[in-house]
């Protein structure tokens, strides 16, 4: 699970090492990446909103 989160974070940043990519593509189903990706996107949106809320108050 931590590996999936790491891969999603690397995708957010836009840089992924070749070794990690090989490992990720061993997995037969893309679903865990998609689910974690959507979830992490929501977390990111919430974080940005929270920072904006902090700045506004």
């Amino acid at each position: 699970m931590l590996k999936v989160i790491r891969s999603v974070l690397a995708a957010f940043f836009g840089v992924q090492s070749e070794a990690n990519r090989q490992q990720d593509f061993q997995s037969t189903s893309p679903w865990k990446f998609i689910v974690v990706g959507v979830f992490m996107t929501l977390v990111f949106v919430f974080l940005v909103g929270f920072v904006a809320w902090l700045a506004a108050n």
Binding site: F13, G14, V15, Q16, S17, E18
Partner: peptide, 12 residues
């Protein structure tokens, strides 16, 4: 060489 993760991280 194909990639260099360190350099890519720096230029991002």
């Amino acid at each position: 060489f194909h990639e260099n993760t360190t350099v890519e991280i720096i230029w991002t």
